[in-house]
Amino acid sequence: MGTILIVAEIQKGVIREASFELAAFAQKLAGSGHEVKSLVVGQGVKGLAEEFAQRGGGEVLVAEAEALANYSADAFTQATLAAVAASGADLVLISNTPSGWDFAPRVAAALDAAFVTDCFDVSDEGGAIGFKRRIFNGKLDAQVKATGTVVATVQPGATPAFEGSTEGKTTDLDAGIGECKTKFVEIKIAESKGVDLTKADVIVSGGRGLGAPEKFTEVVQPLADALGGAMGASRPVVDAGWLPHEYQVGSSGQVVTPKLYIAVGISGAIQHLVGMKGSNFIVAINKDPDAPIFEVADVGVVADLFDIVPALTAAVTAAKG
């Protein structure tokens, strides 16, 4: 029976959906006797804090300072440490977003606390808090036990957002932000170089299973062309320089929802699944029957892609007459 501190995240002037997902986990734990408090940081965020207090945040500490207007690892770490001290929290929940994974480890190290990351489940195991998370890029799951004060980051989308209302209140927190060595300069939106996969009805994506860059033109592109669709790729393909970044489907690339998504030689690391699991119909072709891609696929083919894809291309071409 302890106190949970949710660190909410503001993005583009609103509280992120992921923060309400943290509230869902926290409110579930509140059912087993844990108290829920939250932290909202930024500048001019009182209104957002009041909203969060009523939508799952409970008692919300509001840390406002010029140094918190934009994200910086140092300032957010200091604000969170001040909130932990003020709230007496023994479980700190932070979303595993680009800012969350940047400062949460610093908070844990400063508190000499247990640190568990990218959890998809947080539950009360009779007093202790249990966590579940993916390892080996989603090929295995792990059940993790943490003792003492715990800082945990939670995978966005792991649970539906909290929909209920809470009797909350807001309290100002003087976070006393000191020296910040990391300085925010600006956010740049990468220019699109012409490959807009988000508008394609059909996407055929290739992964590391293709084995070589020329296989994309020989095997993947012809199927995409036959279906009148676009070609995509997984992160390892882009990292290896086989295709430019704009082909990448995934959380750090393009998030796509075509009518048909065909994954060829893609094992299905979580960052790829996040980018395509909203597709209307998913076909996965992979020789590894345990590949996580089959979890999200509607139809799976466990076979050598170099046998299946050319046959499929020929059959599609024939079907078109």
């Binding site: 799951d141 792990a142 993790v144 036990k145 345990d290 509607d298 799976g300």
Partner: peptide, 17 residues
Amino acid sequence: KVEIEKVYTPPRGEGAQ
């Protein structure tokens, strides 16, 4: 302070046909 208690193959959802 953190211990992996158990690793396991993720339970398959409905899965692919």
